[in-house]
Computed example of a mutant assay.
Amino acid sequence: MLDARAPDGTPMFIEEGATCPVHAPDDHPKIPPAKTGVLLANLGTPDGYDYWNMRRYLNEFLSDKRVVDYSAWIWQPLLQAVILTKRPFSSGAAYKSIWNEDAGESPLLTITKAQVSKIRDRLVGAHGDKLVVDFCMRYGNPSTRSKVREMIQAGCTRIVFFPLYPQYAGATTATANDQFFRALMAEKWQPSVRTVPAYFEHPSYIDALARSVERAYGAMETKPDVLVASYHGVPQRYLMEGDPYHCQCQKTSRLLKERLGWADTDIVTTFQSRFGPEEWLKPYTVEEVARLAEHGKKRIAVIAPAFSADCIETLEEINEEIRESFEEAGGEHFTYIPCLNEDDAHMEALVEVIEENLAGWV
């Protein structure tokens, strides 16, 4: 890319091959060849697990009104004076237990990079280099704004924005879209955009989930008594205010059960990661796995269909805290089935969703 600066001094990197429009004067800004961008977005990750990196990350996350919608004059003093004084230590310890030390990053970032590499190979292989494929994070780095800027400077006059959440929730999909549109507000020349809707019932996604369960069960000598589908929770109030997340989670579980050909009793839907004093969607995973153990279900498997990549909530919360709850209640065999991550069936499903949303643009 060619290094240049905008009139206000902002660094600009103009794509090689940029030219002035026909009949324009010689001093007209150069414009790169038109391209289409695909920008995938996930939740985010701290840059490190030390106190200050964790505090910056948690402050950004917990200050998001989509995540915690209490009045700022009540919430911010509590957040700044109490929560962000203590929580960076406990959260940092949790991240340290799963950190990819070799790469110096969280597993979520490592997996997302691998996912995007595979998706890029498939899409560019099908459509050529007129397609730009990249990723951003809602919180932390790489930021949504930085990646939107890069795509526009690379000549993207159209962008498909894809929040990597199978089920829609205000605290996930909506806030990712919010940040995307805030990034566009800073651009002089905005591209045409499309946002990808939730894909919780997409046949290829359901099939990829089912195949991961079949693969895990096929490797076991004895089949688990029940499969626990654990989704990230949200306050019960959000459901009553119109958020469709709960219903979409239930439908994902039902479609997964039907694809596997199972009975209703073979799978149970639960919700994890409760935070704060409010009632959240029930049953809570940490309590339900203990109840199952107490009622004779000594062998369980847990899957996390709301997560497109393994992260702190799956690698630490499910595989440690929730496992411990099950075993302390008398459970004997606990199996965590990893997220779909960069599994080929998952990548094909995501590419299929992207292709559907690229229709007419490539």
Score class of each variant (00 low, 15 high):
E15R: 15
S325V: 06
Q190H: 10
K86A: 06
E150Y: 14
V289N: 00
D129R: 09
K147L: 08
H246F: 15
V68G: 02
F89Y: 13
I74M: 13
I318E: 00
T269P: 00
M347C: 10
W75C: 07
Q190K: 14
V160C: 09
D178T: 03
R56Q: 11
K223L: 12
L358A: 06
Q236M: 14
V38S: 02
V351K: 03
W361A: 04
V82D: 06
K251H: 07
L58S: 03
E342D: 15
K113D: 13
P77N: 09
K223I: 05
C249K: 01
F180E: 01
A306C: 11
K251G: 04
G233Y: 04
E352T: 13
E355M: 07
V38D: 03
I322W: 01
T10H: 11
F307S: 02
D207I: 06
V124C: 08
Y57N: 01
T45Q: 08
L79G: 00
H346E: 07
R87M: 14
R122S: 07
V228H: 04
E327G: 01
A306F: 04
W52F: 15
E324R: 12
W262T: 05
A4H: 05
K113L: 13
S106E: 08
A176G: 08
T222D: 12
D3I: 07
Y245K: 05
H333G: 04
A210K: 08
A210P: 06
Q167V: 03
Y231C: 08
L40R: 00
K251Y: 02
M347P: 00
N53K: 13
H28R: 10
S97F: 13
A293D: 10
E15L: 13
L2P: 00
L109F: 07
V67W: 05
E278A: 12
A18E: 07
W52A: 10
Q179T: 07
E278K: 06
V38G: 01
E105L: 11
Y168K: 04
N53T: 15
